[in-house]
Design a protein around this nucleic acid. Structure first.
Lengths: 180, 180
DNA sequence: TATTGTTATACTCTATAACTATA
DNA sequence: TATAGTTATAGAGTATAACAATA
Protein backbone atom coordinates (compact mmCIF):
# COMPACT_ATOMS: atom_id res chain seq x y z
CA UNK A 1 0.00 0.00 0.00
CA UNK A 2 1.55 3.27 -1.07
CA UNK A 3 1.02 6.58 0.63
CA UNK A 4 -1.24 7.59 -2.26
CA UNK A 5 -3.68 4.89 -1.14
CA UNK A 6 -3.37 2.84 -4.31
CA UNK A 7 -2.48 -0.76 -4.65
CA UNK A 8 0.97 -1.27 -6.10
CA UNK A 9 -0.50 -2.22 -9.43
CA UNK A 10 1.73 -4.17 -11.75
CA UNK A 11 0.29 -4.22 -15.22
CA UNK A 12 0.42 -7.42 -17.19
CA UNK A 13 2.41 -7.39 -20.41
CA UNK A 14 -0.78 -8.74 -21.92
CA UNK A 15 -2.24 -5.27 -22.14
CA UNK A 16 -0.14 -4.07 -25.02
CA UNK A 17 1.33 -7.24 -26.38
CA UNK A 18 -1.31 -9.78 -27.23
CA UNK A 19 0.29 -13.19 -27.27
CA UNK A 20 3.45 -12.19 -25.47
CA UNK A 21 1.99 -13.35 -22.20
CA UNK A 22 1.78 -17.02 -23.10
CA UNK A 23 5.08 -17.64 -21.42
CA UNK A 24 3.76 -15.98 -18.29
CA UNK A 25 0.58 -18.05 -18.41
CA UNK A 26 2.43 -21.30 -18.96
CA UNK A 27 4.88 -20.41 -16.24
CA UNK A 28 2.05 -19.93 -13.76
CA UNK A 29 0.47 -23.25 -14.65
CA UNK A 30 3.71 -25.18 -14.70
CA UNK A 31 4.82 -23.62 -11.42
CA UNK A 32 1.49 -24.43 -9.78
CA UNK A 33 1.62 -27.99 -10.99
CA UNK A 34 5.24 -28.39 -9.96
CA UNK A 35 4.70 -27.04 -6.46
CA UNK A 36 1.65 -29.22 -5.85
CA UNK A 37 3.28 -32.37 -7.13
CA UNK A 38 6.64 -31.72 -5.50
CA UNK A 39 4.93 -31.33 -2.13
CA UNK A 40 3.69 -34.89 -2.50
CA UNK A 41 7.05 -36.26 -3.64
CA UNK A 42 9.57 -34.26 -1.65
CA UNK A 43 10.55 -37.21 0.51
CA UNK A 44 11.79 -39.34 -2.33
CA UNK A 45 15.27 -38.84 -3.72
CA UNK A 46 15.28 -35.80 -6.04
CA UNK A 47 11.54 -35.36 -5.68
CA UNK A 48 9.62 -35.13 -8.93
CA UNK A 49 12.65 -36.02 -11.02
CA UNK A 50 13.20 -39.20 -9.06
CA UNK A 51 9.54 -40.04 -9.49
CA UNK A 52 9.67 -39.47 -13.23
CA UNK A 53 12.67 -41.75 -13.53
CA UNK A 54 10.93 -44.34 -11.41
CA UNK A 55 7.86 -44.11 -13.64
CA UNK A 56 9.85 -44.64 -16.83
CA UNK A 57 11.96 -47.38 -15.28
CA UNK A 58 8.82 -49.34 -14.40
CA UNK A 59 8.17 -50.11 -18.05
CA UNK A 60 8.57 -53.43 -19.76
CA UNK A 61 11.44 -52.05 -21.82
CA UNK A 62 13.56 -50.20 -19.26
CA UNK A 63 15.34 -47.07 -20.41
CA UNK A 64 19.06 -46.48 -20.65
CA UNK A 65 20.51 -43.42 -18.96
CA UNK A 66 20.95 -41.46 -22.15
CA UNK A 67 17.41 -42.39 -23.09
CA UNK A 68 16.21 -40.95 -19.81
CA UNK A 69 18.26 -37.82 -20.33
CA UNK A 70 16.69 -37.24 -23.74
CA UNK A 71 13.20 -37.92 -22.53
CA UNK A 72 13.50 -35.58 -19.56
CA UNK A 73 15.48 -33.01 -21.53
CA UNK A 74 18.34 -32.98 -19.08
CA UNK A 75 22.06 -33.43 -19.56
CA UNK A 76 23.30 -36.97 -19.27
CA UNK A 77 25.84 -35.94 -16.65
CA UNK A 78 23.16 -35.31 -14.02
CA UNK A 79 21.85 -38.86 -14.16
CA UNK A 80 24.67 -40.71 -12.36
CA UNK A 81 24.05 -38.71 -9.17
CA UNK A 82 20.29 -39.05 -9.31
CA UNK A 83 20.34 -42.72 -10.11
CA UNK A 84 22.96 -43.39 -7.45
CA UNK A 85 20.58 -41.95 -4.90
CA UNK A 86 17.68 -43.99 -6.22
CA UNK A 87 19.84 -47.10 -6.11
CA UNK A 88 20.97 -46.34 -2.55
CA UNK A 89 17.32 -45.90 -1.58
CA UNK A 90 16.62 -49.35 -2.98
CA UNK A 91 14.15 -48.09 -5.58
CA UNK A 92 15.94 -48.95 -8.84
CA UNK A 93 18.91 -50.91 -10.02
CA UNK A 94 21.30 -50.72 -12.95
CA UNK A 95 21.41 -53.75 -15.21
CA UNK A 96 24.06 -54.06 -17.88
CA UNK A 97 22.36 -54.67 -21.22
CA UNK A 98 23.54 -58.08 -22.42
CA UNK A 99 23.29 -56.96 -26.04
CA UNK A 100 25.50 -53.93 -25.54
CA UNK A 101 27.51 -53.96 -22.39
CA UNK A 102 28.05 -50.21 -22.53
CA UNK A 103 24.40 -49.58 -21.66
CA UNK A 104 22.79 -49.86 -18.26
CA UNK A 105 19.06 -50.41 -18.19
CA UNK A 106 17.41 -48.72 -15.22
CA UNK A 107 14.77 -51.01 -13.72
CA UNK A 108 12.62 -50.67 -10.64
CA UNK A 109 13.04 -52.92 -7.64
CA UNK A 110 9.94 -54.35 -5.96
CA UNK A 111 10.12 -51.55 -3.41
CA UNK A 112 10.36 -48.99 -6.22
CA UNK A 113 7.33 -50.40 -8.03
CA UNK A 114 5.39 -50.38 -4.77
CA UNK A 115 6.29 -46.78 -4.02
CA UNK A 116 5.36 -45.78 -7.55
CA UNK A 117 1.91 -47.32 -7.21
CA UNK A 118 1.37 -45.57 -3.89
CA UNK A 119 2.39 -42.15 -5.06
CA UNK A 120 0.72 -42.00 -8.42
CA UNK A 121 -2.65 -41.60 -6.71
CA UNK A 122 -1.29 -38.75 -4.63
CA UNK A 123 0.13 -37.14 -7.75
CA UNK A 124 -3.21 -37.36 -9.49
CA UNK A 125 -4.98 -35.84 -6.52
CA UNK A 126 -2.47 -32.99 -6.41
CA UNK A 127 -2.99 -32.35 -10.10
CA UNK A 128 -6.75 -32.43 -9.70
CA UNK A 129 -6.39 -29.79 -7.00
CA UNK A 130 -4.33 -27.56 -9.28
CA UNK A 131 -6.95 -27.78 -12.03
CA UNK A 132 -9.86 -27.73 -9.61
CA UNK A 133 -10.49 -24.02 -9.98
CA UNK A 134 -11.92 -24.18 -13.48
CA UNK A 135 -15.01 -25.95 -14.82
CA UNK A 136 -14.54 -29.52 -15.93
CA UNK A 137 -15.01 -28.57 -19.58
CA UNK A 138 -12.18 -26.04 -19.38
CA UNK A 139 -9.96 -28.53 -17.61
CA UNK A 140 -10.62 -31.18 -20.25
CA UNK A 141 -10.06 -28.70 -23.07
CA UNK A 142 -6.80 -27.65 -21.45
CA UNK A 143 -5.54 -31.21 -21.05
CA UNK A 144 -6.50 -32.15 -24.59
CA UNK A 145 -5.19 -29.03 -26.29
CA UNK A 146 -1.94 -28.86 -24.34
CA UNK A 147 -1.25 -32.50 -25.14
CA UNK A 148 -1.77 -31.88 -28.83
CA UNK A 149 0.40 -28.77 -28.82
CA UNK A 150 3.15 -30.58 -26.93
CA UNK A 151 3.03 -33.44 -29.38
CA UNK A 152 3.24 -31.06 -32.29
CA UNK A 153 6.26 -29.29 -30.80
CA UNK A 154 7.95 -32.46 -29.68
CA UNK A 155 7.52 -34.23 -32.98
CA UNK A 156 9.50 -31.45 -34.62
CA UNK A 157 12.55 -33.05 -33.02
CA UNK A 158 11.66 -36.74 -32.94
CA UNK A 159 15.31 -37.75 -32.74
CA UNK A 160 15.30 -36.53 -29.16
CA UNK A 161 12.75 -39.02 -27.94
CA UNK A 162 11.35 -41.56 -30.39
CA UNK A 163 8.63 -42.71 -28.06
CA UNK A 164 5.39 -40.98 -28.81
CA UNK A 165 3.04 -43.93 -28.86
CA UNK A 166 0.66 -42.64 -26.23
CA UNK A 167 0.55 -39.00 -27.19
CA UNK A 168 0.46 -40.07 -30.80
CA UNK A 169 -2.94 -41.60 -30.16
CA UNK A 170 -4.21 -38.11 -29.44
CA UNK A 171 -3.82 -37.03 -33.03
CA UNK A 172 -4.78 -40.33 -34.54
CA UNK A 173 -1.23 -41.07 -35.66
CA UNK A 174 -0.36 -44.72 -35.40
CA UNK A 175 1.77 -45.55 -32.42
CA UNK A 176 4.19 -47.94 -34.01
CA UNK A 177 7.60 -46.40 -33.72
CA UNK A 178 9.72 -49.47 -34.10
CA UNK A 179 10.79 -48.44 -37.58
CA UNK A 180 11.72 -44.85 -36.91
CA UNK B 1 20.58 -47.93 -32.72
CA UNK B 2 21.32 -50.94 -30.58
CA UNK B 3 22.80 -54.17 -31.80
CA UNK B 4 19.37 -55.75 -31.46
CA UNK B 5 18.12 -53.44 -34.19
CA UNK B 6 15.57 -51.71 -32.01
CA UNK B 7 15.16 -48.05 -31.36
CA UNK B 8 16.14 -47.08 -27.84
CA UNK B 9 12.52 -46.68 -26.86
CA UNK B 10 11.82 -44.56 -23.82
CA UNK B 11 8.30 -45.10 -22.63
CA UNK B 12 6.28 -42.13 -21.53
CA UNK B 13 5.16 -42.03 -17.92
CA UNK B 14 1.75 -41.42 -19.42
CA UNK B 15 1.30 -45.09 -20.08
CA UNK B 16 0.74 -46.11 -16.51
CA UNK B 17 0.08 -42.84 -14.78
CA UNK B 18 -2.74 -40.93 -16.41
CA UNK B 19 -2.35 -37.30 -15.50
CA UNK B 20 1.19 -37.54 -14.22
CA UNK B 21 2.46 -36.44 -17.61
CA UNK B 22 0.99 -32.95 -17.46
CA UNK B 23 4.25 -31.59 -16.14
CA UNK B 24 6.04 -33.21 -19.05
CA UNK B 25 3.55 -31.77 -21.53
CA UNK B 26 3.72 -28.28 -20.04
CA UNK B 27 7.49 -28.49 -19.94
CA UNK B 28 7.62 -29.28 -23.65
CA UNK B 29 5.33 -26.37 -24.54
CA UNK B 30 7.01 -23.89 -22.23
CA UNK B 31 10.44 -24.94 -23.43
CA UNK B 32 9.42 -24.62 -27.06
CA UNK B 33 7.93 -21.21 -26.47
CA UNK B 34 10.95 -20.08 -24.48
CA UNK B 35 13.46 -21.21 -27.08
CA UNK B 36 11.57 -19.58 -29.94
CA UNK B 37 11.07 -16.30 -28.14
CA UNK B 38 14.56 -16.17 -26.65
CA UNK B 39 16.05 -16.57 -30.10
CA UNK B 40 14.33 -13.35 -31.09
CA UNK B 41 15.36 -11.49 -27.94
CA UNK B 42 18.83 -12.80 -27.19
CA UNK B 43 20.54 -9.56 -28.13
CA UNK B 44 18.79 -7.47 -25.50
CA UNK B 45 20.08 -7.43 -21.93
CA UNK B 46 18.92 -10.60 -20.16
CA UNK B 47 16.88 -11.70 -23.15
CA UNK B 48 13.29 -12.55 -22.44
CA UNK B 49 13.47 -11.31 -18.87
CA UNK B 50 14.69 -7.93 -20.01
CA UNK B 51 11.89 -7.81 -22.54
CA UNK B 52 9.29 -8.67 -19.92
CA UNK B 53 10.54 -5.91 -17.67
CA UNK B 54 10.52 -3.51 -20.60
CA UNK B 55 6.95 -4.49 -21.39
CA UNK B 56 5.72 -3.89 -17.86
CA UNK B 57 7.73 -0.68 -17.53
CA UNK B 58 6.01 0.73 -20.62
CA UNK B 59 2.73 1.04 -18.78
CA UNK B 60 1.06 4.20 -17.64
CA UNK B 61 1.62 3.20 -14.02
CA UNK B 62 5.23 2.02 -13.94
CA UNK B 63 6.10 -0.81 -11.59
CA UNK B 64 8.39 -0.71 -8.60
CA UNK B 65 11.14 -3.27 -8.35
CA UNK B 66 9.40 -5.38 -5.78
CA UNK B 67 6.26 -5.21 -7.89
CA UNK B 68 8.25 -6.55 -10.81
CA UNK B 69 9.74 -9.28 -8.68
CA UNK B 70 6.32 -10.45 -7.58
CA UNK B 71 4.85 -10.32 -11.03
CA UNK B 72 7.71 -12.29 -12.57
CA UNK B 73 7.99 -14.61 -9.57
CA UNK B 74 11.64 -13.89 -9.06
CA UNK B 75 13.58 -12.83 -6.01
CA UNK B 76 13.91 -9.09 -5.53
CA UNK B 77 17.69 -9.39 -5.27
CA UNK B 78 18.06 -10.26 -8.94
CA UNK B 79 16.46 -7.06 -10.14
CA UNK B 80 19.25 -4.57 -9.37
CA UNK B 81 21.61 -6.40 -11.74
CA UNK B 82 19.06 -6.78 -14.50
CA UNK B 83 17.81 -3.22 -14.26
CA UNK B 84 21.34 -1.86 -14.09
CA UNK B 85 22.01 -3.51 -17.44
CA UNK B 86 18.78 -2.16 -18.92
CA UNK B 87 19.66 1.31 -17.64
CA UNK B 88 23.18 1.08 -19.07
CA UNK B 89 21.67 0.05 -22.39
CA UNK B 90 19.53 3.18 -22.28
CA UNK B 91 16.25 1.26 -22.34
CA UNK B 92 14.78 2.14 -18.93
CA UNK B 93 15.44 4.53 -16.10
CA UNK B 94 14.80 4.54 -12.36
CA UNK B 95 12.60 7.32 -11.03
CA UNK B 96 12.23 7.88 -7.33
CA UNK B 97 8.53 7.87 -6.47
CA UNK B 98 7.72 11.34 -5.09
CA UNK B 99 5.05 9.87 -2.80
CA UNK B 100 7.40 7.35 -1.24
CA UNK B 101 11.04 8.03 -1.80
CA UNK B 102 11.98 4.45 -0.97
CA UNK B 103 10.44 3.25 -4.21
CA UNK B 104 11.91 3.54 -7.67
CA UNK B 105 9.50 3.35 -10.57
CA UNK B 106 11.00 1.65 -13.61
CA UNK B 107 10.00 3.52 -16.76
CA UNK B 108 11.01 3.05 -20.37
CA UNK B 109 13.09 5.59 -22.22
CA UNK B 110 12.11 6.55 -25.75
CA UNK B 111 14.66 4.06 -27.06
CA UNK B 112 13.18 1.38 -24.82
CA UNK B 113 9.64 2.04 -26.01
CA UNK B 114 10.84 1.95 -29.61
CA UNK B 115 12.64 -1.36 -29.11
CA UNK B 116 9.59 -2.81 -27.42
CA UNK B 117 7.36 -1.92 -30.35
CA UNK B 118 9.82 -3.43 -32.79
CA UNK B 119 10.23 -6.69 -30.97
CA UNK B 120 6.68 -7.45 -30.00
CA UNK B 121 5.89 -8.31 -33.62
CA UNK B 122 8.85 -10.67 -33.73
CA UNK B 123 7.72 -12.27 -30.48
CA UNK B 124 4.25 -12.81 -31.86
CA UNK B 125 5.63 -14.38 -35.02
CA UNK B 126 7.83 -16.69 -32.97
CA UNK B 127 4.86 -17.72 -30.87
CA UNK B 128 2.74 -18.32 -33.96
CA UNK B 129 5.49 -20.62 -35.25
CA UNK B 130 5.49 -22.60 -32.02
CA UNK B 131 1.74 -23.11 -32.18
CA UNK B 132 1.71 -23.49 -35.94
CA UNK B 133 1.70 -27.28 -35.87
CA UNK B 134 -1.86 -27.66 -34.64
CA UNK B 135 -5.17 -26.63 -36.23
CA UNK B 136 -6.35 -23.14 -35.43
CA UNK B 137 -9.20 -24.46 -33.32
CA UNK B 138 -6.79 -26.40 -31.11
CA UNK B 139 -4.50 -23.39 -30.84
CA UNK B 140 -7.39 -21.15 -29.80
CA UNK B 141 -8.68 -23.71 -27.34
CA UNK B 142 -5.20 -23.98 -25.86
CA UNK B 143 -4.75 -20.24 -25.49
CA UNK B 144 -8.18 -19.80 -23.96
CA UNK B 145 -8.06 -22.76 -21.59
CA UNK B 146 -4.49 -22.15 -20.43
CA UNK B 147 -5.32 -18.53 -19.69
CA UNK B 148 -8.29 -19.55 -17.60
CA UNK B 149 -6.34 -22.18 -15.73
CA UNK B 150 -3.49 -19.75 -15.06
CA UNK B 151 -5.93 -17.17 -13.77
CA UNK B 152 -7.53 -19.72 -11.50
CA UNK B 153 -4.18 -20.77 -10.07
CA UNK B 154 -2.83 -17.26 -9.82
CA UNK B 155 -5.91 -15.89 -8.10
CA UNK B 156 -5.35 -18.38 -5.30
CA UNK B 157 -2.51 -16.12 -4.19
CA UNK B 158 -3.68 -12.64 -5.20
CA UNK B 159 -1.36 -11.00 -2.70
CA UNK B 160 1.50 -11.90 -4.98
CA UNK B 161 0.33 -9.81 -7.89
CA UNK B 162 -2.85 -7.81 -7.51
CA UNK B 163 -3.07 -6.94 -11.18
CA UNK B 164 -5.40 -9.29 -12.96
CA UNK B 165 -7.50 -6.83 -14.91
CA UNK B 166 -6.79 -8.29 -18.30
CA UNK B 167 -6.88 -11.97 -17.47
CA UNK B 168 -9.89 -11.26 -15.27
CA UNK B 169 -11.83 -10.34 -18.38
CA UNK B 170 -11.43 -13.93 -19.54
CA UNK B 171 -13.68 -15.26 -16.82
CA UNK B 172 -16.05 -12.35 -16.73
CA UNK B 173 -14.74 -11.11 -13.40
CA UNK B 174 -14.68 -7.37 -13.20
CA UNK B 175 -11.24 -5.90 -13.55
CA UNK B 176 -11.40 -3.31 -10.82
CA UNK B 177 -8.74 -4.21 -8.33
CA UNK B 178 -8.31 -0.86 -6.68
CA UNK B 179 -10.08 -2.04 -3.55
CA UNK B 180 -8.26 -5.28 -2.97
C1' DT C 1 9.09 -1.13 13.57
C1' DA C 2 8.30 -2.11 8.67
C1' DT C 3 9.53 -1.71 3.81
C1' DT C 4 12.37 -0.53 -0.53
C1' DG C 5 16.33 -1.19 -2.57
C1' DT C 6 21.09 -2.78 -2.44
C1' DT C 7 25.23 -5.62 -1.73
C1' DA C 8 27.94 -9.66 -0.56
C1' DT C 9 27.85 -14.31 0.03
C1' DA C 10 26.50 -19.08 -0.44
C1' DC C 11 23.98 -22.52 -2.61
C1' DT C 12 21.68 -25.28 -6.31
C1' DC C 13 21.34 -26.66 -10.68
C1' DT C 14 23.32 -27.27 -15.01
C1' DA C 15 26.85 -27.43 -18.61
C1' DT C 16 31.81 -28.50 -20.29
C1' DA C 17 35.54 -31.31 -20.75
C1' DA C 18 38.10 -35.28 -20.10
C1' DC C 19 38.38 -40.02 -19.05
C1' DT C 20 36.99 -45.55 -19.23
C1' DA C 21 34.90 -49.32 -21.21
C1' DT C 22 32.71 -51.20 -24.74
C1' DA C 23 31.35 -51.48 -29.68
C1' DT D 1 36.06 -44.01 -34.73
C1' DA D 2 31.85 -43.64 -32.14
C1' DT D 3 28.90 -44.24 -28.09
C1' DA D 4 27.40 -45.14 -22.87
C1' DG D 5 28.55 -43.98 -18.69
C1' DT D 6 31.30 -41.56 -15.23
C1' DT D 7 33.85 -37.90 -12.88
C1' DA D 8 35.69 -33.32 -11.86
C1' DT D 9 35.32 -28.73 -12.66
C1' DA D 10 33.31 -24.38 -13.99
C1' DG D 11 29.48 -21.58 -14.76
C1' DA D 12 24.67 -19.54 -14.58
C1' DG D 13 21.02 -18.68 -11.97
C1' DT D 14 19.01 -18.21 -7.54
C1' DA D 15 18.40 -17.66 -2.63
C1' DT D 16 20.04 -15.93 2.19
C1' DA D 17 21.50 -12.53 5.15
C1' DA D 18 22.86 -8.13 6.36
C1' DC D 19 22.82 -3.26 5.46
C1' DA D 20 21.23 1.87 4.38
C1' DA D 21 17.47 4.93 3.36
C1' DT D 22 12.84 6.08 4.02
C1' DA D 23 8.25 5.67 5.99
Amino acid sequence: MTSSGEVDRVALPTDDIPGADLGWVLGIVLRGWHEAVDAVLEDLPHGLRGFQILAVAAHENPPTQTGLARHLHIDKTVLPYVIDDLVNAGLVERRVDPNDRRMRRIVTTDAGARLLRQRKDAVERAQADVLGGVPDAVRDAFLDASGRVALSIHSTKPYLDPCLAVLGALTGAEGDLSKR
